[in-house]
Design a protein around this nucleic acid. Structure first.
Length: 277
DNA sequence: ACGCCTACCTGCTTGC
DNA sequence: TGCAAGCAGGTAGGCG
């Protein structure tokens, strides 16, 4: 599902396909996709005629920077996809918002489950003031992670999913990072040793980078802007590998529910008591 | 601060 | 075959 690597893949593709394009018209087919409190009519009026200057990503949102400095944020949530359709492409019943580009193409926000949200902002800070640091940025150091962990008492798994703690990590990459770091999902944040924090930091960056390299993880819905699934599912170590052998110790991967989320881990490599060998 | 719950949605899988 | 229940999980908001 779209987490940081999937959204990054979409953003990089769109930078190539639609940077410089002009939005002629906006067609909103599911009104709740447009973030409250902006009325849909005003949203369409505000976006009409704008040129897309640059496409980027913050957290799990694709950002379309308009040439007057305003920002369109598109949160894909569970099933959202941004697809560029050529002029004669057949319609898509799941296209919730269609940006009609001046060159005849359409930038479609496809979203089966309607969880996705599109917002319009004056500045980046407005939209993401409550989000935590970007795990792949240069300023996200092990020391900074340690500082943030030290102040918390919650479980690692829940914390990794908390967007105000770290931006962009979701259920798949959280489980993967904990396996690589050999840390139990229920470990309390404040109890990590220096070496464990270093492992977690390294693991987070490793799994996210690998996800980007493989153009994202696809189980059912995720496709990048070219409509193609990602290749990272085959590279996963624990996520949805319940009962299969751990790639380190060959023991069976376990599954449990933490904070209402399916969680996969190796009971041997990721022990709860004491540091893993 | 944290855990826990519900709501938001639809399609696919499972079980009877 | 039909049909209902269960499941998937990102995020906001509410409660204790």
């Amino acid at each position: 599902m779209p987490e940081l690597p999937e959204v990054e893949t979409v953003a990089r593709d769109l930078q190539r396909w639609v940077a410089g394009a002009v939005i002629d018209e906006v067609e909103v087919r599911w009104e709740r996709t447009i973030r409250h409190p902006l009325p849909v009519e005003r949203f369409a009026a505000e976006v009409r005629g704008a040129r897309i200057a640059k496409v980027g990503r913050r957290a799990k949102s694709v950002l379309l920077r308009l040439d007057d400095g305003r920002l369109l944020s598109i949160a894909l949530r569970m099933t959202g996809a941004l697809l560029v359709a050529p002029p004669a492409a057949p319609d898509d019943r799941y296209a919730r918002v269609v940006f009609h580009l001046a060159d005849g193409r359409q930038l479609r926000f496809r979203d089966v489950r309607k969880f996705g949200r599109i917002g319009l902002w004056r500045r980046v800070g407005q939209a993401f003031s409550r989000h935590g640091p970007e795990p792949l940025s240069g300023s996200f150091t092990a020391a900074r992670l340690r500082e943030r962990l030290r102040r918390r008492s919650g479980r690692l798994k829940s914390l990794l999913l908390d967007q105000s703690f770290i931006a962009g990590v979701g259920n798949i990459y959280a489980d993967e990072a904990l396996w690589h770091a050999r840390l139990h999902p229920l470990r309390r944040a404040g109890t990590l040793t220096l070496a464990e924090v270093a492992r977690l930091h390294r693991a987070l960056r490793r799994v996210l980078r690998q996800g980007i390299t493989n153009r994202g993880t696809t189980f059912s819905d995720y496709v990048s802007a070219d409509g193609e699934p990602g290749a990272n599912a085959e590279q996963l170590s624990v996520y949805r590998r319940t009962g299969q052998p751990c790639l380190r110790c060959r023991r069976q991967i376990q599954r449990m529910v933490v904070g209402q989320r399916a969680t996969h881990w190796c009971a041997h490599c990721q022990p709860l008591a004491g540091a893993a060998a």
